[in-house]
Design a protein around this nucleic acid. Sequence first.
DNA 1: GGGGAGAGATGCCGC
DNA 2: GCGGCATTTCTCCCC
Lengths: 246, 246
Amino acid sequence: MGDLNSYEENINQALQKKESLVFSCNCTIKYSGRAESFLGKGDRIVVVKEDGAILIHQPTGNSPINYMKPGTSHSVVFQDQKLVFSSKHLAQKEYLDMDISKIHFFNAHKLEDTESLVLAGTEKDMADMLMKDPHLIEEGFKPLNNEEHTKYGFIDIFGHDKDNNLTIVECKRYTADLSAVTQLRRYVEKIKDAKGLKEVRGMLVAPKISSNALKMLQDWGFEFKAIKAPKFLERYDKGQKKLDGF
Amino acid sequence: MGDLNSYEENINQALQKKESLVFSCNCTIKYSGRAESFLGKGDRIVVVKEDGAILIHQPTGNSPINYMKPGTSHSVVFQDQKLVFSSKHLAQKEYLDMDISKIHFFNAHKLEDTESLVLAGTEKDMADMLMKDPHLIEEGFKPLNNEEHTKYGFIDIFGHDKDNNLTIVECKRYTADLSAVTQLRRYVEKIKDAKGLKEVRGMLVAPKISSNALKMLQDWGFEFKAIKAPKFLERYDKGQKKLDGF
DNA sequence: GGGGAGAGATGCCGC
DNA sequence: GCGGCATTTCTCCCC
C-alpha cells in the first residue's frame, strides 16, 4: 500500500480501463440528486463497476448506504491531503462526493461474466401453476387465455367458476396485505365496468393474508384461498440431492 | 496470491474474527430460501460483512445478483479442487452455496464505522413542510395535530379546509400512481366510517400524477395538487457552497 | 414478531 | 420515455 496520493493515478487508470474497482477506505460522503444526504467519517467498502455503478457499504447491513446507478462517471483528485472521489450522473442530475482520508486496500480487475440468474418461485411461477392446474383454485374453475386477460390490465388469472361466474384471481407469493386487496378491488371494478356485469367474483390467492387485509377482503365480498408459491428449481434440486442430501 | 486451497484457512480465520471479507472469484452460485436460484460460472465480487450479511455482485448492474441478510453464518471447505463457500440462515431457512474455481483477490479487514446517514427530501420532509406552511395545500387550510391523526391510521396530514370540511391529504415525493389513489380512498372511507361523516375531502399532493391515476382520482371525486418535495439539506448545502460553489 | 407504508427503492416488461 | 407492477424487495416505525 502506497501513500494516499499514489492512488490517484491507480484509480484513474483503472476507471479508464473500465475495470471493476474494489476498495476499502475511511471517508465522508455527500450525495445530491433525488434527495440529499451526508455521512460522517467512517470505514466503508466501495465497489465501482465497469458500467459506472457505484456501491458504498458500511460494515453492517444489507443495503448500500450510498450508491449511484450504471452510467455514472467517476474521477479522483488528490487535494488537501485527501483523495476526493467524485461521481456524476448528468442525465439524472445526481452527484456523489467522497472525501477519502485513508485507503485500507485497493484492487482493480477486469471481470468476465456472461451468465444470468435462473430463478424459481416467483409470482409468475405461481400463476403458471394455477393456469396448469386450475382445480387448485377451485373445483371446476376454467381459466381464460392470456390474450383475453391482458385487455383489462395486469390481472394474474381470470376465468369462470363451475357456475360460470366471471372470477378474477390475484396471486401473491408472500403474505397478502391491504394493498393486495385494493388491487383486487380495482380489477373487479374495472371488469364490472368494462363488461357491464353486476357480479364478478374476486379471489386472493397467497400463502397467508394479514388480519386487517382479511377483514377488508370479507367486507367487500371477496374470498381468500391459501396456496404456496412453487419454488422447485429442477437443476438446483438435482444438485442438492447429489451434493449434500438436504 | 496462493493456491486455491490456501484460502480455506484464511477465509475461515477472517470469518471467525468477524472481519469484513471482500474478494473476487470465478464461481457458480445456488440459492434456496424464499425462492430458488442458480447462476452459472462467471466472475463476481463478494462482500461478507461482520454481521453475516453477504452480497454477491456481477460486473454490471446496481443490485446484487445473490445475497443473504445479516445473521447468516458462513464456512469454507476445499473439496474436489474447488473452494465450497456455504452460507446458512437457519431461522429463515435460507441457504446459499458458491463453488469457487478461482480467487482473483482476497482481503479481510476490521472496519470501524459509527456514523449514520443524514437524509433530506423524504415524504416526511414534504409532510413537515406542509404542516408548517399549510397554505401550500390550500388557502385557509388548518391541519390537525399529530396525536389526532395517528388514531385512524398512517394518514400523512388531515385537517379542515376554509369551509371547515374534513380533508385528508396523502403526500407522495414521486409521481403518484394508481396505488396512491387507492391508498387515499382507503383512508377517506376509513375516516367516513369512523366519524360517521357523509363527506370527507381527499387530496393527493405530489410533484406529478400518472394519467390513469388522475382519471381514477377524479372519478372518485378527489383532488390533485402539484407540489415538489423539499430536498434541502442544510449541512450539505453549506458545504457545497463553500467547497465547489454548485 | 406482525403489520403497514416509504424507498435516493430497483428491475422488468409493455406500449 | 411513461406506466403499471413484482421484488429472495429492504428498511423503518409502531403496536
